[in-house]
Write a protein that binds this DNA or RNA. Sequence first.
DNA 1: CGACCGATTGATCTCAGTCAAAGGTTGTGG
DNA 2: CCACAACCTTTGACTGAGATCAATCGGTCG
Lengths: 249, 249
Amino acid sequence: MTQVRMISPLFDDLAKVEHHHQLACQSCALYRLCLPLGLHRDDLSKIDQIIKRSSGYKRHQILFEPSSTFKTLFVVRSGSFKTTISAADGREQVTSFYFPGEFIGMDAIYQQRYLSTACALEASSVCELPYEHLQGLSATIPELQNQLMTRLSKELSSDKNLLLSLGKKNAQEKLISFVLSLSQRFSERGFSARSFQLTMSRGDIANHLGLAIETVSRLFSQLQEQQLLIIQGKELTILDLPTLKQRCG
Amino acid sequence: MTQVRMISPLFDDLAKVEHHHQLACQSCALYRLCLPLGLHRDDLSKIDQIIKRSSGYKRHQILFEPSSTFKTLFVVRSGSFKTTISAADGREQVTSFYFPGEFIGMDAIYQQRYLSTACALEASSVCELPYEHLQGLSATIPELQNQLMTRLSKELSSDKNLLLSLGKKNAQEKLISFVLSLSQRFSERGFSARSFQLTMSRGDIANHLGLAIETVSRLFSQLQEQQLLIIQGKELTILDLPTLKQRCG
DNA sequence: CGACCGATTGATCTCAGTCAAAGGTTGTGG
DNA sequence: CCACAACCTTTGACTGAGATCAATCGGTCG
C-alpha cells in the first residue's frame, strides 16, 4: 500500500500558487469565481492594492473566532473551511463549509465582531479584504458594492435552504441535499460534479445536518447498497443523479 | 364576554398613520429603528423620494412569492409578516418573522428573484424600497450602503442562530430561545420585554422551530405549570427571565 | 509494530411525532 | 345579537426515526 496519497488537498493546482502572495487578481485562477468579476480593469487594480494574500493555514488551524477583532472579510483561495457557532454550554453547530472563491465572515459586519469560528479543513489559503478599505472603495466602485450585496444575499439564500433541510427533511433527504449541493458547487468551480473528495469529516457532516455520526455513516452505506453512489473514505462518486435528485425532498 | 378585543394589531399606534402614505421618514415613528438611521437630512430626503408607502395588507395576504418579479425590498411599517420557503413536494419552512423596522426580501438580491413567500400575520403595512434606486442612491450615500450591508449581515446572524437552535437544541430549548428572541426584539422597539402578543399561530411557531404543533402546545403548558411564564391564547407574559435564560441552551 | 483516531455496524432506548378526541375561539350569516 | 361552522389549541395514548451505547474494523503516524 504505497499509493496511499488519495486524499489530496482540494484544488491542488490553486494551492500551488499560494506562495505568490502578490499575485494580481487578474492572473488568479479564481478570477472568474471571485470578487473581481465584472469589475473594470482599473477598479480591479485598486482592489488589488488593498487585498492581502495570506500565508497558508494548516488543517484544523483557526482563521478567526469570536474573540478575534473584526477587521477583514476572507475569500478562500485554496482548500476549504468550516464555520461553527457555539451555544452557551459549548455545543457547536457547523453552519457552513467554504470553498475557493467564497466569502467568509460576512455575518460579522453587523456588530463588527465575528460570532462564529472559522477553521481550515485541510491545507488552505485565503485572501484578506480589509473591511474598512472595502467600504471606502465601494463608495466609488458601484459594481463592487453590488458584488458585496450579492455575496451576502447568496449566503442568506443558502442558509435559508439549510433551514429547510434542518427543519423539514428526514435524515436521508438531508444527506442527499447536502451531497447534491456539494456536487453543484464543485461543478461551478470547474471540477467534476460526479466525483469529488469530501474534505470534511463524517462528524462535521453529521453536525452540520443535525444528525448523529452513526446515522450519516449508515445512510452512506445504504445509498451505496442501492447503487446511488459510491463512498470510499473521503472519495464520493455519484452514480444515479436523477434518483438522488428525486429523493432530496 | 364583550371585552373580547384582546388581540389588537401589533404596533397599533403605527398602524394609525398608515394612511399618510407620503409621511416623510423624518416624521415616521419608526425613524430610530429604520433605514434612515445615521443618514444626513438631505440624504434622507433623497430616500424619501424613492420610497413608496404601500397600502395595508390584511391577515394572510401575500406580500410576494417566488413567482413575483423582484423589484423592491420591503420594510415593515406596522404589523408583522412571516416568510416561508418550500421544498419540491410542498413542505414549507417558516424561515423568519418580521416586525416594524425590519427588512424583508434581502435574500432575493442574489438572482434577482424572491425565493420565499412573505405573508402578513395580521393587518400590516410596509414601505417599498425599489432596489435599483436604492443601488443608485447608495453609490452617492456611503452611509446608506453601510446600512444595507449591516441589515443583510444582521439577518445572516439571526439565521445562523436559528441553525444552532434547529440543529442542536431540544424542543424546550428551541421554544425558550424563540420566546427570548421575540422578547428582545419587542424591547428594542420600545415595547415590554415581559409581556407581548404572539402574532403568529402555534402552527407557525412549531413549523419555524422544526416541531409539531402539539409539542409547542405541551411545552407552553409545561412552562406555565413551572411558573416560568403565562400563556393565554396569544398573550405571553414572562415570569422568570433568569431561569428561562438558563434553560435556553 | 502498536496506538490512536475516525468510520462502520449492531442493539437498545428515548424524545418528539403522529393519531385521536375534546375544548375554545373566531368569524359569518341569518 | 345569536347560532353555527370552521378552525385553532390543548391533552392523552401510542409509535417510530434517529440518538445513544457498545464493539469492531481500518487507516495513519510516531
